[in-house]
Amino acid sequence: MNAQVQIDAQLRELSYAEAIREAMAIALESDPAVVLMGEDIGTYGGAFQVTGDLIDRFGPERVMDTPISELGGAGVAVGAALTGLKPIFEFQFSDFAALAMEQIVNQAAKLRYMLGGEAEVPVVFRMPSGSGTGAAAQHSQSFEAWFGHVPGLKVVQPSTPAEAKGLLLAALADPDPVVVFEHKLLYKMKGPVPAGHYITPIGKAAVVRPGNAVTIVASAIMVHRALEAAAKLAAEGIEAEVIDLRTVRPLDRETIIASVKKTGKLLCVYEGVRTLGVGAEISALVAESEAFDYLDAPIQRLGGAEAPIPYNPDLERAAVPQSPDIERVARQLAKGEV
């Protein structure tokens, strides 16, 4: 049970971006150690207007514009986290985190371990991610598997405004570095968001549509595409169970395994490149688990094409799973045709 169900009396509609902003405002208000850092997050309000007017409310010392220095900026956030601040560092696009891999992967993720537990790095990296905006190859990638491969990091992918707020507050409460992948196409999506402080637990997936014919595990925008497909399949009498993964690392084994034991069919849907992606890991964990003996069809994956994200809108759509793709494969699975 997560908090948003309990507080439904106070639900209001906020956009995904507004929900994230609200989480940051709550954090800034309640903890003087919290600082926001990033490029153009101050007066400009962030590349996607997520920080918005926070600079007016909290001032430039708490909402700090950094120079265009991803490596250095991320490193400053790591050093600040190591010594007592709780920075939320925004990358303008998750793609730019490639410039800062050193600090995220070699430093933030490993410092606690390298120092034998004598230090901690409570930093949050926010990463606008995903395709669909026509921004092509260097502004559209989905890197969750990259970071999910690194012990020491936690990686979350909210799919709704309520989750975006709850997971960000959970990330802030976590004593270890957390990478939050925010899907750019979801920023304007509206949804009910509880007021006040609550946490959506890291490491916990959610069954967002129950069913018994096939399990679809999806994250971020793919959750919505999977739900759309599931609604169409329901009209044909096929009840797909849709799991919103929410956290890429650590994976919620229990929820996934329980679902596959029920349905016997698994379809993993993710936007990152199919090969060696998040779905590969989910497939493997199911194949290695007790759910194996319940499988009634080969596990299927729908992931991003083995290509950079293209510019042409038709090509761009074709490069990542869409609702009809999910519908088709889920149907074949449910009917025993795979």
Binding site: P32, V35, L71, G75, G79
Partner: peptide, 13 residues
């Protein structure tokens, strides 16, 4: 960059 971050903490706090 980590040293700069540590100095930032000192200044902020």
């Amino acid at each position: 960059p980590i040293a700069v971050g540590a100095a930032l903490t000192a200044k902020r706090l």
